[in-house]
């Protein structure tokens, strides 16, 4: 039983640490802020979650809920942080446009003729139709 537990913890710890490392590599190698956000929000979250689960397996049962709570915080907060950082990045011109395949948000804003609102979301002052170069339809 102890051996099994040790093996599970070992695997989880090592894969978790590797994902943390790969996330750091992505953070270093990607060119623009929003791309780095992918590395920061996904690989890091996965790595931390794996390590926390590994610790929860190994530690006494009473600590597992708290460790899972930390994992839950991370799981729910990472997307919120990354959305706020991503929005700010887009508004402060931190997106490398040469690397963008399409930018439907810029298309939308150009057709609206309305810049982004100061605080929240877009401020459309009229209803908009579909995107002519939308590939989805």
């Amino acid at each position: 039983m102890t051996v099994l537990r040790d093996v599970v913890t070992a695997v989880l710890f090592l894969t978790g640490a590797c994902f943390c490392l790969l996330g750091a590599v992505g953070l270093l190698r990607f060119r623009d802020t929003v791309s780095r956000l992918h590395a920061a929000s996904k690989a890091q979250t996965l790595g931390l979650l794996l390590i926390l689960v590994g610790a929860a397996v190994h530690r006494p049962l009473g600590e597992a809920p708290v460790l899972l709570l930390v994992a839950l915080f991370q799981l729910f907060n990472a997307p919120i942080t990354s959305q706020i950082v991503g929005r700010t990045a887009y508004r402060t011109h931190a997106v490398d446009r040469r690397r963008l395949f399409v930018d439907e948000l810029a298309d939308r804003l150009a057709r609206d003729g309305t810049p982004l609102h100061e605080q929240g979301g877009l401020t459309p002052d009229k209803e908009e139709g579909g995107n002519p170069d939308d590939t989805d339809r």
């Binding site: 994902f19 790969l22 996330g23 590599v25 992505g26 190698r29 990607f30 060119r31 929003v34 791309s35 992918h38 590395a39 996904k42 690989a43 979250t45 996965l46 790595g47 887009y90 997106v95 690397r99 963008l100 395949f101 399409v102 930018d103 439907e104 948000l105 810029a106 939308r108 995107n131 939308d134």
Partner: peptide, 23 residues
């Protein structure tokens, strides 16, 4: 899956990864 995807993109393509903003 997303951890694997982004890790692979970081290692394989690095700074040359293309992206898009979609609606």
């Amino acid at each position: 899956r997303s951890g694997v995807t982004v890790a692979w993109a970081a290692v394989r393509h690095g700074g040359r990864t293309r992206s898009a903003i979609m609606e």
